[in-house]
């Protein structure tokens, strides 16, 4: 009797074991991700300032947020930054991938050079570009000492143009990665179809436009999703490159949230802005992940 009970316990334990092993990770994620999301969203409806507080204020933080010029600037910058960053990275990544796919020599070396920025911290990238673009010691100064005395390039110090320097550094960092994604897509295309089309007299241009690029749709989709989520999360790069300035010229939602929550003691408004960031990313990521996970079945 005792032995069968023991064996019974063992088999039941074996049956439970997989779920037991999964449970610590799951518990961590449920508490630290989903529990925290609920907490932050809740805080966005309270009068929290320096510390979390639980006085319910309804939508007040949101209506305040939308009246802040600081937030408006952050959103406008986000629009400019995301549009340019995603478009340039995609166009550049695709073009470089197509060029690299022409059986070029030293492909491995070139790929390594294009992709290494992805291994760097945004703080390193920001530091390098910050001083290279600095008019006092960087590009402007260099070209002036080389004899082009009228050359001016002060974008990083110029309110109207500083956001484009953030685009430049971000494109530098990630375009190689997008190139690698498209290159993988190109390598997956069946050559027989291309040969057949060529027999029919299709030009290279038409081959790419009509057959190859349409087949890269999954790569386009992945690139778009990854780039847009990176764009919304951009924080360190701005901190290192411009610190959000000059003035507020390069503030983004992520830096807005940080300064309102931690230096301006407006935690309720900070939480409201974080909630809006989360909703934006969720609107992009959830359908994408849903489709990816379903396909696998």
């Amino acid at each position: 009797m005792a032995r069968t009970a023991d064996a019974d316990f063992k088999t039941r334990l074996q049956a439970l074991l997989p779920k037991l092993v999964l449970s610590p990770s799951l518990a961590l994620v449920l508490v630290f991700v989903y529990g925290f999301i609920i907490f932050s969203v809740y805080l966005s409806f309270t009068d929290s300032r320096l510390l979390p507080s639980f006085g319910w204020v309804g939508w007040e933080n949101y209506s305040k947020l939308w009246r802040l010029s600081h937030w408006e600037i952050s959103l406008t910058n986000m629009g400019i930054f995301a549009a340019l960053y995603i478009t340039i990275c995609t166009v550049l990544g695709l073009s470089l991938a197509i060029f690299l796919d022409q059986k070029v020599r030293a492909e491995g070396v070139i790929r390594t050079i294009y992709l290494y920025p992805m291994a760097l911290s945004f703080i390193v990238t920001g530091t390098a570009w910050k001083w290279f673009l600095d008019p006092g010691i960087g590009l402007e100064n260099v070209l002036q000492t080389w004899g082009w005395t009228t050359f001016e390039f002060d974008w990083i110090k110029n309110r109207d143009f500083a956001i484009y320097t953030v685009v430049l550094a971000a494109v530098w960092q990630t375009s190689g990665f997008v190139m690698a994604m498209f290159l993988a897509g190109l390598r997956g295309i069946d050559n027989e179809i291309l040969k057949a089309a060529q027999m029919d007299g299709a030009s290279n241009w038409n081959l790419y436009r009509r057959i190859i690029i349409p087949q890269l749709r999954p790569a386009f989709l992945s690139a778009f999703v990854i780039l847009s989520h990176l764009a919304i999360k951009t924080f360190d790069l701005v901190i290192a490159l411009t610190g959000g300035g000059p003035g507020r010229a390069t503030e983004l939602p992520a830096t807005f949230m940080y300064s309102y929550t931690f230096s301006r003691n407006q935690m309720g408004i900070g939480a409201a802005s974080a909630t809006i960031m989360l909703m934006t990313i969720a609107a992009i990521m959830i359908p994408y992940l849903y489709a990816e996970l379903r396909e696998k079945k």
Binding site: V29, G35, I37, M277
Partner: peptide, 13 residues
Amino acid sequence: FACFIPFQIVLIP
């Protein structure tokens, strides 16, 4: 999905 959230949403808690 937890990998893709903007981490600003978890900073306070």
